[in-house]
């Protein structure tokens, strides 16, 4: 149960970088006014950000991942969040077992 000094410093560097990104948006909106088309752009941030994180997995990893992403997305239109996630995970496990 030891904490390596280099590891601790690395963790603190990650934490500092993350805190910086989380707080700077708040500082930013104090200095930039958000009206009209900027307001609209702000509302597009959630899907833009989430899509950027997930796109390489969804479209450029393998057939199993792409199909499972499609299944998850369709499930999310109708089913509760957790059920959709579980379906996606089951789907990817089955497809990988089939060798896709």
């Amino acid at each position: 149960m030891t904490v390596d000094l280099a590891t601790l410093v690395a963790i603190l560097a990650m934490a500092a970088a993350t805190v910086l990104t989380r707080l700077s948006g708040l500082v930013l909106i104090r200095h930039v006014s958000l009206e009209g088309s900027r307001r609209k752009a702000i509302e597009s941030i959630p899907p833009a950000v989430l899509m950027a994180v997930v796109a390489p997995t969804a479209f450029a990893t393998g057939i199993a991942e792409t199909l499972a992403c499609a299944v998850t997305a369709f499930a999310a239109l109708r089913l509760p969040m957790l059920v959709s996630v579980a379906l996606g995970v089951a789907c990817v496990a089955i497809l990988r077992a089939l060798g896709l």
Binding site: A16, T18, T21, R22, G25, I45
Partner: peptide, 21 residues
């Protein structure tokens, strides 16, 4: 610490947009 610190900054730069929103 420079490697993972910079990677964290890059991966989490989206948080700037998220917190602004």
């Amino acid at each position: 610490w420079t490697g993972v610190g910079f990677a964290a900054l890059l991966v989490n730069i989206r948080h700037v947009l998220m917190s602004a929103s």
